[in-house]
Simulated assay, not measured.
Amino acid sequence: MMNHGGTRMTYAYERIKKIKCFLFDMDGTINLGNQLIPGMEGFFDKLKAVGRDYYLLTNNSSRSHEHYVNKMNGLGVPVTRQDILISSDALTNWLRKHRPGARLFVLGTPQLLQTVAEAGFTLTNTLEESADYVVVGFDQTLTYERLAIACRLIDKGVPYVATHPDVRCPIEGGEFIPDTGAMLELIKTATGKKPQLIFGKPYQYMVDVVLDKTGYAKEEIAMVGDRLATDIAFGLNNGILSIMVLTGEATLEDVEQGSIKPDIILPHAKEILKYL
């Protein structure tokens, strides 16, 4: 199923055959909340059986790798810590290259702080301690005191970066809670300054992690997801095949009315196996 002309459709399906590494969004693509999407049973075993690699990607920097490993294994999806890529991995991968050993003031959950510390960076906690960067993550434990310290550091000239741009995080029952992008707007309003970099989808830094980890070329990598502005834009912006599935947020009508056009649209992620 495609939203483009026949020639491009044929070309896109030919591209699937060349993919060696699939990047999967989770919620809306593999699972809906704590339920596996019907039809995804055994999918990843079959993908491995035909010699394809895969990673599960999320922008949600409030959780640890172990959280997603436990959740996905509980749903019957075989993954290890190495198979989970979080926006915080893109952050630490970039910092290792550009500012190894950096001192960081992080607005984040205990899980994010642990991820950053384990990656070899020093966490600071006060205005008086020097920091090389302020890091804004999805901080569901945010206090006014830490928010104020972050803004004061930024006012003093400390550059700030963010794990991901999402403004709203979906929760049960079709509701939403404020995400990192909303916190960035608050900080921009308070300081008059924009973040230097944002690391999650749809930006390049998650692709950089995959390229560094695997050695694959971009034409051997595909992004599979249900959200146009993050998953599909991530593929299109970074020269990797974008495959939209209709099991989550975006609909065919959204594609027709919007400016973001996936390379391929499938009703369900399991359909990928037909083209390998």
Rank of each mutant, 00 (worst) to 15 (best):
A131I: 02
L241P: 12
F199G: 11
K156L: 11
K194C: 06
Q196F: 05
Y203L: 00
E128Y: 10
I154C: 09
N238F: 09
A250W: 07
C169I: 00
Q204M: 04
I171F: 05
K188W: 03
A117T: 12
C151G: 12
L246D: 12
G181P: 10
C169V: 03
E128V: 07
V209C: 14
D226T: 04
R227P: 10
I198W: 10
M183R: 02
T180S: 15
T115C: 09
N238A: 07
N125L: 00
A150E: 09
M244T: 00
E185Q: 15
G157H: 04
A148V: 04
E249H: 13
S130D: 15
P165W: 01
I221K: 10
G215K: 09
D139N: 14
L228Q: 06
K201W: 05
I154S: 10
D212P: 11
R168P: 00
K193V: 03
S242Y: 06
L197A: 09
G181L: 02
R152Y: 08
Y144T: 03
F199Q: 08
A150I: 02
I232K: 11
V245C: 09
L252R: 13
D212G: 11
M244Y: 07
E129I: 02
I149P: 08
G173V: 03
Y160L: 01
I198C: 10
R146Q: 11
D231S: 07
L197C: 05
V135W: 13
G192H: 04
E128A: 15
S130G: 15
L153F: 06
T214L: 02
L211N: 07
I177N: 09
G192N: 08
T214Y: 04
L241A: 03
I221G: 10
M183E: 02
E129C: 06
R168N: 15
E172I: 01
T124I: 03
K201H: 05
T163R: 08
F234N: 05
G173Q: 02
P170E: 01
A150R: 00
L184W: 07
L123Q: 09
N237F: 00
